[in-house]
């Protein structure tokens, strides 16, 4: 492998160590946080944002996810007219209103969920994707509403429903209203379930809190990307509670598959194929 392009003639020990920090910069090169190899960004990106050396799955936003999953040019975005309001006039160190604006500028998204109808290897499906780039994919009223409408649309049009989750949980800045989105989405899934709809829930790194404890865990099939953090409480909270070392691999996809709450760990490269195969197999 090529060494760091920024190598200089005289280096002290601290200079040698510093690039080992995981910094996902906008540079041409970056170091994989898993195998610690220097990798070429473009190569990583063309490898579905996976490390070309060790296949570490980098986190991706909703737009990239949709690009990866759907057949080119087939995705029609829906519910794009929903915007977050600030019902509680929430203010911590910053106001929620400021955060919304800053996140919208940063992520070029309006909130943390994108949904629409698209084709996956020629199979039509209703797709909703949570967006980590917007407030860690947290679920407020807009996310809850988009997921619910996606469920309702899938039911109306008799389409399979695919939700790709990546979220820190319910959005604190909407407090009780965020909590109610868990109830709302789950109730909508209850109807979809009884109507015979097929729901494939895809869990990606990280899926925690109120998102896991509602629609993400209600899939007829639950797929998870390798080594994704999946849980209800975060590992830090658990560690503070029990004051013990957590088990090896705790709350990672493979571990969750072993404990019985994920059907299949599916790598990003196989995700399209596996989803298409399930849609075919179930005849939806």
């Amino acid at each position: 492998m090529a060494k760091s392009a920024a190598a200089t003639a005289t280096r002290t020990w601290s200079d040698v160590k510093s690039p080992r920090k995981v910094v996902i910069s906008e540079g041409l090169w970056l170091r994989c946080p898993s195998c610690e190899q220097m990798i070429y960004r473009k190569q990583m990106e063309s490898n579905l944002h996976c490390c070309p050396e060790c296949q570490h799955h980098f986190r991706i936003g909703a737009a990239e996810r949709i690009r990866q999953l759907t057949d080119p040019g087939t995705f029609e975005a829906m519910f794009t007219n929903l915007r977050p309001s600030d019902p509680l006039k929430f203010k911590d160190l910053k106001t929620y209103a400021e955060r919304i604006t800053a996140e919208q500028v940063k992520s070029e998204a309006t909130d943390a969920c994108q949904a629409g109808v698209g084709f996956i290897k020629g199979r039509q499906a209703m797709l909703a994707v949570l967006d980590l780039n917007f407030m860690m994919g947290s679920m407020g009223s807009v996310v809850g509403e988009i997921i619910t409408r996606a469920i309702e649309t899938a039911q109306e049009r008799e389409l399979p429903l695919i939700v790709v989750s990546a979220s820190g949980g319910a959005r604190m800045q909407e407090s009780g209203l965020s909590l109610m989105q868990m109830a709302k989405t789950s109730a909508a899934l209850a109807r979809f379930d009884r109507a015979g709809g097929l729901f494939i829930s895809v869990l990606t790194d990280p899926t925690t809190g109120g998102v896991t404890a509602s629609f993400a865990m209600l899939g007829d099939l639950i797929f998870a990307e390798p080594k994704a953090l999946i849980g209800f409480a975060g590992p830090r909270v658990i560690q503070q509670t029990i004051r013990q070392e957590l088990p090896e691999g705790f709350q990672r996809s493979e571990y969750i598959q072993d404990t019985g709450f994920v059907d299949r760990v599916v790598s990003r490269h196989n995700l399209r194929t596996e989803i298409a195969r399930v849609i075919d197999f179930t005849g939806k």
Binding site: A187, M217, G231, A233, V237, I242
Partner: peptide, 26 residues
């Protein structure tokens, strides 16, 4: 809140709550 512990996670705290939300609605 629901208990944040290793056993709770292993036995599917999130799934247990999610399933209640869905089934109670019916």
């Amino acid at each position: 809140g629901a208990y944040p512990g290793v056993g709770a996670e292993q036995r599917g705290q999130a799934e247990a709550i999610a399933f209640n939300l869905r089934e109670m609605s019916l």
